[in-house]
Amino acid sequence: MVNSEGQFYTMEGIAAAVLMVITASLVMSTTSIYTSGDTHIQDMQLELLGNDALKVMDTPKAAGANSTLEELVRDWNNTEFNNEFNLSINEKGINERGFGNLYYTSNVFYINKTGVVRDKLFSYSRTYFGNPNAVRVTRWVFVGSNAPIDGIGQFSDFNRTRNQTVLLEVLIWRE
């Protein structure tokens, strides 16, 4: 017996299969972000390390004293900041994971005389060329109204009519 009833089933099957395959392809092509499995962990390690380094530099060594970080930013002492921060992030311990070749660059964000937020390069161990794996850590640093004073006029547009807490931004990456 030959009739057209069976056609219905065949077309349904094809339609369902095509729908499923197209849907799955769409889902995969739109939501997949191809990263290596451990990238987020390396980022977390660098971020934690950078935050720790800034935090301990911002912890005064004695009661009533200023923190090292505060003094270094206030005095615009990027040489000493480089020594301390580099030591903090690159101290070699038991690690064998390349924690010993980290590089950083740092900027300070402040308010200038016209009330605009500006930034200046503070200290760096290597020039930053947009390394995609760099992580960013920040710390607010109170510098008051008379600082930073570096003696060569880099902060000539610093708004000295008010106390300021500047934002120190550090980018850290591994090479």
């Binding site: 069976g6 219905f8 089933y9 349904e12 099957g13 094809i14 299969a17 395959v21």
Partner: peptide, 24 residues
């Protein structure tokens, strides 16, 4: 026979999709 063909195509599609999921 037509129903069997339709069902088979559906199952093949299902298997293909199931295979794609781990790739996500």
């Amino acid at each position: 026979i037509d129903f069997l063909i339709g069902f088979t195509i559906f199952m093949l599609g299902l298997i293909m999709v199931a295979n794609m999921i781990p790739g996500l």
